[in-house]
Computed example of a mutant assay.
Amino acid sequence: MLRPSRTLVSTAIVTLAILPGLAGACSTCGCSLNSDWASQGYATSSGFHLSLREDYFNQSRLIEGSHRIAVGSIALPSDEELQRKTINRNTLLGIDYSFNRAWGLSVQLPWFSRYHETWPEGETTLSSSDGRGIGDVRVLARYQGFSPDAGVGLQFGVKLPTGTFKQPFNAGTAAGELLDRGLQRGTGTTDALLGVYKFGYLGESVGYFAQAMAQVALNARGGFRPGNSLNVNLGLRYLDAGIVTPQLQLNLHGEQRESGALADRANSGATLAYLSPGLGLKLGRRLEAFVFLQLPIHEHVNGVQIEPGRLWSAGLQYRL
């Protein structure tokens, strides 16, 4: 039976200690759930693995610090922009190739569909945007040859500036003006990605994984630099329930404030934690499905931001 190493436990403790100091820009604009095959131990065999994932979440809860505030309690017009809601329907296509048991490469292509409403500064009527398109592509290499069971891995790569950062409002008094940079489908920057993961078994029936992934912007663009971020994911799977696999994740996300002339520095950066129960379903020898519900258990944001009350994720994974 494999047991978590002391190094893994130490890394998790240090990472959790760092999180509060890492204060998602413009609230959570993406889902922090882990569906990475490699870090969960699914991609140890050579060959291609494909995945398709759908995320849905409605950011409509107004949060100040760690407290929810009623939208009606804020007098309009406001001397600052006040976000009303953002409805996110995101698709993530993943292509993973394992060259051998030690080395692999994955490409993640996001497609965003995002509807947003806000009260501009000094206005009492809402302005809105409704945009769809490709986001920033992520390319990750991995090495998991540290042990015979390939249970420890290192990930490294880049996030490329493939998503637009020039989407305007479609309606309202702000029509034609650009959305805040934190709401755009892309940041315009190239970011470095560095992660570490461990997976194994706590017994014959329970599998576990732990992953930490840091994202650091390497440049600023157009007066904007996104905050550096850190995701930490811990998960358990029960393996003796037939074709159904009950799962539970703890997802932690920390992000620093944006910077630059076009950044909303006062209202960016947060520390967030989600508890995510889910199910895996084996549909065949090569095909699996999953569905998860993410529930916030801790929220602390800088300034005033909108956060979702729940996040849904569902997807398919196929081994070629």
Rank of each mutant, 00 (worst) to 15 (best):
M1N: 09
M1H: 08
P4A: 09
L8T: 10
A12T: 07
T15P: 03
L16E: 09
L16T: 09
I18K: 02
S27C: 13
T28K: 15
S32Y: 13
S32R: 14
Y42S: 05
A43Q: 09
S45R: 11
S45N: 12
F48V: 11
F48Q: 09
L50G: 09
S51P: 08
R53C: 08
R53V: 11
Y56W: 09
Q59P: 11
Q59M: 15
E64S: 07
S66H: 06
S66W: 04
H67T: 07
G72F: 03
I74Y: 01
A75L: 04
D79W: 03
L82M: 03
L82D: 02
I87N: 15
N88R: 13
R89A: 08
T91E: 05
T91K: 03
L92C: 07
L93P: 06
A102G: 14
A102E: 15
G104H: 14
G104F: 12
S106W: 11
V107Y: 15
L109Y: 15
P110C: 08
S113I: 08
S113K: 13
R114T: 10
H116G: 05
W119M: 06
W119L: 10
W119C: 03
E121M: 07
E123T: 12
T125R: 12
S128M: 08
S128H: 14
V137A: 09
V139C: 14
A141V: 11
R142E: 13
R142G: 13
D149W: 08
A150S: 14
A150L: 12
G151W: 12
V152L: 13
L154V: 07
L154K: 03
G157N: 05
V158A: 12
G163K: 00
P168M: 04
P168R: 05
F169N: 05
N170H: 09
T173D: 11
Q184C: 04
T187E: 02
T189E: 00
A192L: 07
V196C: 00
K198R: 09
L202M: 00
G207E: 01
Q211N: 03
M213N: 00
M213Q: 03
A214L: 00
V216I: 01
A217S: 05
L218Y: 02
N219I: 02
N219S: 01
N219E: 03
R221V: 01
R225V: 02
R225I: 03
G227T: 03
G227M: 02
L230Q: 01
N233C: 06
L236G: 00
L236E: 01
D240E: 03
G242F: 06
V244P: 05
P246N: 01
L252T: 07
L252D: 07
Q256I: 06
Q256K: 12
R257Q: 13
R257F: 11
E258H: 10
A261T: 07
A261C: 04
A263K: 11
D264M: 10
A266T: 13
T271A: 07
Y274H: 15
L275F: 14
G278T: 02
G278L: 03
G280I: 01
G280S: 00
G280R: 01
L281A: 08
G284K: 13
L287D: 11
F292R: 09
V301M: 12
G303A: 14
I306R: 12
G309A: 11
G309F: 11
L311N: 15
L311T: 14
R319P: 14
